Simulated assay, not measured.
Amino acid sequence: MTVERITDTHCHIIDRTVLDYPWLSDAPALDRDWSIETYTQEARQAGITRTLHMEVDVATDQIDNETDYIAGLADRQESLICGIIAACRPENNDFGDQIAAAQAHPLVKGFRRPLHVVPDALSEQPLFRDNIRQLATAGLPFDICVTARQLPQAQRLVDAAPQTQFILDHCGVPDIAGAGWNSWAAEITALSQRDNLSVKISGLPAYAQAGWTARDLERWVMHVVEQFTPARCVWGGDWPVCTLGGSLTDWVSATRSILAKLSTQERAAILDENATHIWGLT
């Protein structure tokens, strides 16, 4: 049987010898280097054929340095990195310059500003929303990273920029270990009505109880797929954060098991083809 291609839309490389990551001091389980070599070896074995690097919330003054560093890794022979989702600061007046720099960089395919680590009011500011609306013209999608309680906030941002393409990271960060189903499921259903929003099936191993199985994750994944349809879902490994609940290999295996009930075409869309369309990959 042919193993289906996987585009990993969410890989983090951490190199503390090159960049500063202020948040790592509060995450001791992740507070070390996570190299491209380590990721690549496991990713290839798991069937991942290409990767988008997701910004890792480096120190603000090193955002451009992170992009340049990852671009250097992408230039290596047989690198899996096919694009970069770069950090940005839509709350700043110079956001137009950030857009221009991204458009001039062939590997930058989109932006993310993590919203779960800043005050909720940040994305409600007129400047922030005006800047996010500019991404539509620039053709740069925006990843939304919020916790489950912030899903109404995500909905307001998506509604404020109806021409911008958004991707909801980590299925909206459900509390799987705490069985926080009802409000999360309702918010996912509401968000799925926004045509300019897709969802990333990622992150779930870190939110489940230790020793989780594919069956433990299945209803959470399938609710997202059923509400957004396979046409608006992509997949992400979220390495190395996924190691908090297992391994990248475990997550790939669980994903294949959960999605096995879908058609070949639907699986191909989620695991590979939708990413090509959203981020303009080649």
Rank of each mutant, 00 (worst) to 15 (best):
I81C: 01
D238E: 06
S202I: 09
E37D: 12
D61Y: 05
D169P: 00
I6M: 06
R149D: 13
P230A: 05
G246L: 00
S25Y: 15
G203A: 01
I278V: 11
A214H: 00
A190N: 08
C88K: 06
L151I: 08
A190C: 12
Q163D: 09
G237E: 01
Q165Y: 11
L140D: 08
C82Q: 01
R156V: 15
T255Y: 06
K109C: 08
D61S: 14
A27D: 11
G237C: 03
G72Y: 08
L259T: 04
L197Y: 01
I36A: 15
E66T: 14
T60L: 07
R32F: 13
W220C: 04
T255E: 01
V108P: 03
T147I: 14
I258Q: 00
T137P: 12
A59E: 10
A269G: 06
N65T: 14
T164N: 02
V241N: 02
Q165T: 06
Q98H: 07
R219C: 13
Q153T: 14
A148Q: 11
G180K: 06
V199Q: 07
G172Y: 01
R129L: 04
I84F: 08
R89G: 10
Y207S: 09
A138W: 04
R267I: 09
W239D: 09
I6F: 14
V146Q: 01
T67L: 08
A260R: 11
S35W: 05
M222Y: 04
Q193C: 03
R113K: 01
A136R: 12
N65K: 13
R267N: 08
R113F: 12
S183Q: 10
E37L: 15
F111E: 04
S202H: 09
I48V: 03
N131F: 03
A101R: 09
W34M: 11
Q227S: 02
T40L: 07
T7R: 15
L107V: 01
T49G: 13
L244Y: 14
I6V: 00
N274Y: 06
R149P: 13
D143F: 01
P174D: 00
T229V: 01
Q265H: 15
T255D: 01
W251V: 02
Q45G: 12
R133S: 10
E78K: 06
I132T: 13
R219A: 10
G96W: 02
L30F: 05
F95P: 05
D33N: 13
E273L: 09
A59H: 09
R256P: 05
A46H: 09
R50T: 04
C88E: 10
